[in-house]
Amino acid sequence: MSAEMSSGGRIARRFAAVAQELRPALVTFVTAGDPDLETSARILAALPKAGADIIELGMPFSDPMADGPAIQAAGLRALNAGQTLKKTLALVRDFRETDADTPIVLMGYFNPVYQYGPEKFVADACAAGVDGLIVVDLPPEEDDELCIPALKGGLNFIRLATPTTDDRRLPAVLQNTSGFVYYVSINGITGSSAPKTSEVAAAVERIKAHTDLPVAVGFGVRTREQAAAIGRTADGVVVGSAIVQAVAGSLDEQGHATDGTVAAVEALVQELAEGVRFARQMAAE
């Protein structure tokens, strides 16, 4: 286990830091290379300054089965612009030259990792400054494929729990999970509907009965108000589709970045950050 992991790592330190501020973490998702590599790097650099606590960086894939139309389109834009997994790791490495503290989690599917070579991927991801992985199509029964090598290499392996993950299944899901648990608040694809606050609160409480890890809630959170509502009980609030749509809405007719692309992401993330910062204050009132 690496020194980074043994000391708790960036993810653990960040959750501890925001807990000291009596608020949840804002976890933001963007697709690597969307709409192009240069703009993607500028967006990545802007996220922490706008209020993002943890960054999920999507690894573009041609068959993203769990993603809604917005993230599918973002992945397609990135792939059409020439994004590869090697370039995604380089993006993280460049980010680390100016930001040594913000946790970065790579999120995506196993196929690109398999093509890259799991052992080489783990080594290169660690060297680039990646902190964790979310691989949505690898169940616990296949932990030997990537989860165990990732943990041994020093990467957190973050697992998804869903409304259909019952108490019998949950221990298996949590067995090798580290960093945090990502609770998918709705059934279906990303960005398809809004989560119900009362149901999310009950689910977070149930998961916490099985683990000491932070629980971050995502899928369907789009506004400052929703972020505040979910953040009253969750340790982290994940926003993806809304940010990706902010990118898409800023592009020109040819799908290229404009002068307003980075600013559009910054403005939305700043609003969301305001929401999570007031989440616990609202709960106390």
Rank of each mutant, 00 (worst) to 15 (best):
Q20S: 01
L57G: 13
G220Y: 05
L89Y: 10
G249Y: 03
G179K: 03
R23H: 10
D167V: 04
P118W: 02
I54K: 05
R232E: 14
D124K: 07
K86G: 14
I54P: 07
I11K: 03
A73F: 04
R159I: 09
F121R: 06
T98M: 05
V215K: 06
E145M: 12
V200Q: 14
A41Q: 15
V122H: 00
Q83H: 08
K49L: 14
S7A: 15
I11Q: 04
T31K: 04
G9V: 04
Q20E: 13
A263C: 07
M1Y: 15
V200P: 10
A46N: 02
P195A: 04
A74W: 06
E21N: 00
G188V: 00
L170W: 13
L37V: 08
P214C: 08
N111S: 14
A201R: 11
C147V: 06
T223M: 03
E142P: 07
Y116A: 07
N187P: 00
I207C: 05
N156F: 01
F121V: 13
S185N: 14
L146A: 01
K120C: 01
L213R: 02
A194M: 03
S62N: 04
G188F: 00
D235P: 09
E21I: 00
L170E: 10
T162A: 10
P60E: 07
V135Y: 02
R169H: 13
S178E: 12
E266W: 07
I71F: 00
E142V: 02
G249N: 10
A172S: 15
I148E: 10
I11S: 07
M282N: 14
E199M: 00
F157A: 08
P214L: 08
T261W: 05
S193R: 15
Y183C: 06
A172T: 06
Y114Q: 14
L44F: 01
E21Q: 13
T211E: 12
V27L: 05
C147I: 04
S241Y: 06
R168Y: 12
A12E: 09
Q254F: 11
C126I: 15
L44D: 02
A17N: 07
A73E: 13
G33P: 03
A202S: 12
N187D: 15
S192D: 14
N111K: 05
T190C: 04
A150H: 07
G58L: 05
G191P: 09
G188Y: 03
T197Y: 14
V265F: 03
R206V: 05
G218H: 01
D34G: 06
G249C: 00
D131P: 08
L151K: 12
A242M: 09
T162R: 04
A257D: 04
E199H: 08
T164D: 14
N80F: 00
E119T: 11
N176Y: 10
A209M: 08
Y114V: 12
E274T: 15
S250P: 03
T98I: 07
I186A: 03
L268K: 09
R14L: 01
L151H: 11
Q245G: 06
L76A: 15
E97H: 12
R42N: 04
R168H: 14
Q281S: 13
A257K: 06
A125D: 09
